[in-house]
Amino acid sequence: MATNGSAAVISAQPASYDPEFRTIDLGCDLAHTGRMQLDYAKNFTVDEFEGGVRLVCEANGERFLVVPAGASAPDGLDPDIAVIQQPLDSVYLVSTGMICLIDEIGALDAVTVSSVSAEDSPNADLTAALEDGCTDFGGKYSAPDFELIAERGCTLAIENTKINHAPEVKQKLQDLGVTVLTELSSSEPEVLGRLEWMKLMGVLFGREDEANARFDEIAQRVWAVADQAPTGKTVAFFYINDDGAAVTRRSTDYFAQMIQLAGGDPISFDPDAEAEGSSSIQAVIDLETFYAQAKDADVIIYNTTVDTSVKSIADLTAKNPLFADFRAVQDGEVYACDENMYQAMTDMDAILEDLRCALTGSGESAGFIWKLD
């Protein structure tokens, strides 16, 4: 494990970490045999029971029992526990963040219905599957093609937290016999905590060895990039919303941590969670306040994963004349980012390299962060 440079901002959790949401009472007599050791992820746990059964607990209070092929769920199981029966050979994948993780462990062939089309897919293998007809486009999270999902025999839907805004969709899927698992990786405070959701995908798809090996390989690459001296450069990462306010990330967000790992110092705003438009992840700041704190930033990274309208420095200053006074604008240190950056967890080391290139003005971009003219 790296201990020098920017990598010091990554904190591994102690082996004794035991979150309150972890509840291992199944309501039946199945013997508990062990627990998966997680180093960074804080929003799920996995416990092992006799017969190879796994219990997944999530920070949202939901629990899932993963039952091996050829076995059955035990009698007397608590009714709050949803069953995921292996093997998984027909999955409705809604969470775009999980695409690269599932692909990394070689389980993408189990995805038969996707919420992204071939044209919008952020992953080459999923694009090919959609074009070949191995996977069907099944509509967005809020309006899925229930008939198609039923026809393809999907037994599991992997959603992200957007499904919380469409409870009727979740209920309809469950009425069709589809178990709905909401992944919470976006709420992970640690960069490697997001990546460690690969281990949960390994449990679900019966590819734990592959998930452990690939996680270790990618984490080592992240450590190698991050274990470099800080640059001393300050970074403003944001976009401008329709109301003309700046939307940035909180200091506890994983992207703020990525800037630190690349050797930068993120300019963060942490208003009350109740502030209009803000959340536990993002902060919405009026432009005058943002200007006062960010005008002297060494580097600007405009969040074009959300607002793709900014393709040049002129596009940014057209948003508001105040931007012309920003030091980074005057120095030409303005960057944009790839719209699929948040979904590229397995390329985390390359994203860090691109961030560091922006901070140091050297190196070649891998295409996740690039300079605007």
Results as ranks from 00 to 15, higher is better:
residue 96 T to Q: 14
residue 98 M to S: 13
residue 26 L to K: 00
residue 97 G to N: 14
residue 215 F to M: 05
residue 8 A to V: 14
residue 66 V to I: 11
residue 1 M to C: 14
residue 199 K to H: 05
residue 57 C to W: 00
residue 315 D to H: 07
residue 226 A to S: 13
residue 42 K to C: 10
residue 26 L to E: 00
residue 252 T to A: 13
residue 102 I to P: 00
residue 220 Q to Y: 08
residue 96 T to S: 13
residue 168 E to Q: 15
residue 31 A to I: 06
residue 188 E to N: 07
residue 184 L to N: 03
residue 288 E to C: 07
residue 363 G to V: 08
residue 216 D to W: 08
residue 291 Y to I: 03
residue 77 L to S: 10
residue 322 L to Q: 07
residue 176 L to M: 09
residue 11 S to E: 15
residue 143 A to E: 13
residue 353 E to F: 06
residue 245 A to Y: 12
residue 136 D to N: 14
residue 158 I to E: 06
residue 28 C to Y: 02
residue 359 L to F: 04
residue 67 V to I: 13
residue 181 L to G: 05
residue 129 A to K: 14
residue 311 K to W: 02
residue 284 V to G: 01
residue 258 M to S: 09
residue 200 L to S: 02
residue 124 A to V: 12
residue 354 D to W: 01
residue 268 S to P: 04
residue 95 S to T: 06
residue 78 D to E: 15
residue 40 Y to P: 01
residue 6 S to A: 15
residue 71 A to K: 15
residue 138 G to L: 02
residue 235 V to R: 03
residue 289 T to A: 14
residue 195 L to M: 08
residue 277 G to W: 04
residue 39 D to K: 13
residue 81 I to W: 01
residue 279 S to N: 11
residue 231 T to K: 05
residue 204 L to R: 04
residue 139 G to A: 10
residue 169 V to H: 04
residue 166 A to Q: 12
residue 3 T to R: 13
residue 209 D to V: 13
residue 264 G to K: 04
residue 339 E to D: 14
residue 153 G to Q: 05
residue 24 I to T: 14
residue 158 I to N: 05
residue 354 D to C: 08
residue 91 V to A: 07
residue 336 A to Q: 08
residue 233 K to D: 03
residue 184 L to G: 06
residue 269 F to R: 08
residue 78 D to C: 11
residue 157 A to F: 06
residue 322 L to A: 13
residue 63 R to K: 12
residue 366 A to V: 07
residue 156 L to F: 03
